[in-house]
Simulated assay, not measured.
Amino acid sequence: MNYKERNSNFELLRIIAMLLIVFHHSIFHGVLAYSVTMWQGTPVSDQVWVTTFVGELIAMFGKVAVAVFVMISGYFLVNSSSNWKKSLRKIFSLVIQVYFYSMVIYLVGAHFGWINPKDLNTIRQAFLPFFYNTYWFATEYLLLYLVYPYLNALIHSISREQHRNLILIVSVFSTVVPTIFIHFTNYNSYGNLVMFVLYYIIGGYIRLYTIEDEKKKGLLLTIGSILLMAGVIFWHDYMGRITHNQQYYGNSFAYAEQNSLFVLLVALGTMMFFKHISLGHNKIINTIAATTFGVYLIHDNPIMEQVIWLKWLKMPALLTPNIGHLLIAVGIICPSIFIICSLIDFIRIKLFNLIAFIFNKAKKTM
């Protein structure tokens, strides 16, 4: 099912999720880029501990948005037929889009002197983006796309109760245990794929089955989980403040990471809620939603994240006791970046469609 055929409720959710990811990156790669809260070396001083906490509140929805993106894929793909031609076309489209932005940004960066074009690691990231962690989400999503037909076969071969139990079992080991024991293990790339599989089967469950009072329960679950996650982060930051133990700050944001139970619950509740929002077909929403992956590829490219957050905007300078300054700056900057990147990808889509049209026309005349 493509963007034009979909009800706009989940397309609106895509837009919100990507905007939250931009906000997340403004803090993670910007304001707190050098802070111990993001596992860097600079300790949190008493003067900015509240600003640090506010920054973490802004950033804590980033991984929720990632979970939502994958759950939406599970929601729409779970009933799709296993058509390898169609799958290969989608995989090819994903790969082309990633390579396009990776290489174009490399060439632009080299032209304007943002990078050393001869640096081996920079070249690897630009020309082999799926192998050198240029875009971790794109790599994990590609792997998920390769296995989703088999996940569908599993999902449709088991009962509702078995499907629910499978979600619970994977959730316990992938989110509950790491949330209780935050240094339990380092899941790395394979752990991300496990999380993506979990999100996918949850999205499939939401599509296949309806829960009583689902919209209301989803809203309560979302709000409750957000409050719990914010409360745990605040407790760690406050303990860091009164004990002057930087370890508390270092552990605080772990509860908003990919393996956090809070992240999973917020994403689950959000999906349950948006499932029952009826917007019909909105062309503007669907058009913007089609650019969200491009927004990610542009602003979170390793070159661009350095240029945008550190070189141009100097976001770490916002880490001051002036919380209002931080909120105003981030509130203006992040939507602006989203809009600019969305417009760029809109042009890219039109260009690619024109090239495809010319190619198909030439193919027919041969």
Results as ranks from 00 to 15, higher is better:
Asn133Asp: 15
Arg124Ile: 02
Ser45His: 13
Val197Gly: 02
Ser225Asn: 09
Asn9Thr: 11
Tyr209Met: 07
Val31Gly: 05
Ile340Arg: 04
Met195Gln: 13
Ile242His: 04
Gly74Gln: 08
Thr175Ser: 06
Asp119Ser: 01
Asn192Gln: 10
Lys85Gln: 03
Val295Arg: 10
Lys350Leu: 10
Gln97Cys: 03
Leu144Val: 06
Phe100Val: 11
Leu128Glu: 15
Ile72Val: 12
Pro129Asp: 08
Gly324Arg: 05
Gln125Phe: 06
Ser8Met: 05
Glu212Gln: 12
Met229Tyr: 11
Val177Arg: 09
Val147Phe: 11
Ala267Phe: 02
Ala290Met: 01
Ile308Ser: 01
Ser171Leu: 07
Met60Phe: 15
Asp345Thr: 03
Thr37Leu: 05
Leu151Glu: 05
Leu143Cys: 10
Leu94His: 05
Phe112Gln: 01
Asn116Met: 08
Tyr187Asn: 03
His325Ala: 00
Ile91Arg: 03
Tyr148Asp: 02
Ile182Phe: 09
Ala65Cys: 08
Thr175Phe: 09
Asn152Arg: 11
Gln47Tyr: 15
Ile284Met: 15
Lys275Thr: 08
Ile105Cys: 06
Ala138Lys: 06
His236Ser: 11
Phe184Tyr: 13
Gly280Cys: 10
Val194Arg: 01
Asp119Tyr: 04
Ile211Gln: 13
Thr365Cys: 00
Val64Gln: 12
Ile16Glu: 01
Leu279Asp: 11
Ser35Asp: 03
Ile167Gln: 09
Leu354Gln: 12
His24Met: 12
Lys63Tyr: 14
Ala138Gln: 11
Asp213Val: 02
Leu166His: 07
Val147Glu: 11
Phe273Ala: 14
Phe131Pro: 05
Arg6Cys: 04
Val197Leu: 03
Thr292Ser: 03
Ala17Ile: 07
Phe100Thr: 13
Met229Lys: 13
Val22Ala: 05
Tyr209Lys: 09
Cys334Pro: 00
Ile303Ala: 00
Asn188Met: 11
Asp119Ile: 02
His236Gly: 06
Arg348Gly: 00
Ser87Tyr: 02
Ser93Asn: 05
Ile233Asn: 02
Arg348Pro: 00
Gly55Ser: 13
Leu198Cys: 06
Val177Pro: 01
His25Lys: 07
